[in-house]
Amino acid sequence: MDKTKDRPLSGTVGEVKTTFIDTLFTKNIVLVQAIGISPILAAGVTLKNGVVLTLCTAAVLIPASLFMSLLGERLPTWVRAPIYTVGAAAIMLAAAAFIDQIISHELYAALYVFLPLTAVNTLVSYRAGGFSMSQKPVIALTDAVVSSLGFGLVICIVSGLREIAAYGTLWEKPLNFSVVLSEAALPYAAFLLLGFMAAFLHWLNSVIDKRRGGPEI
């Protein structure tokens, strides 16, 4: 059966809006669904790292989600994961060469271990390999863009706060703080920060639900 005929590149505005709000805020990919936590803990120590990893995640997730939405159901279940993962790794190879040669060699050296890990991020396996499979291309595309934004929002907040605390800088610009907490760059600080951010979002969602008359968490 030709899935593309059943699922043309169109979707209702309501579906797109719901996907947007759910994925970015109410069911935030990181803070509610616990997806994509590893790069935040390991590499989210400066705002620049956070922005680069967000762009790399979008560069991998958007084509992978579209591919899986259009062709995923035609492939046997067991070959889907290696196909989109190796494809994502090839995209990251190009991204690594671009960052190393065009942007900054120092930035590439700092992210050498973490750039290729974007290809095996749970964000790609759960969204492209899971959610997008049963969705129209437009919904899969919206979900990929908003998942990247949701991930980017969290990693940028965490990275920015950790950079300020650990190095006394933001985007490598000194803030002239007299006290720096270098331990903030260690994973435990990110675990704790993410825990409190997740609790805040949980509370915010419950307040919004209460005002709308929905069930309290």
């Binding site: 616990a34 260690l186 600080a189 990110a190 704790l192 609790a199 949980h202 509370w203 419950s206």
Partner: peptide, 22 residues
Amino acid sequence: PKAFRGLPSILIYLGILSLALM
């Protein structure tokens, strides 16, 4: 507390384990 049930408390628990190990 309600807001900390589920994922928030797991993340904080792992953070404390990581801090203890460090």
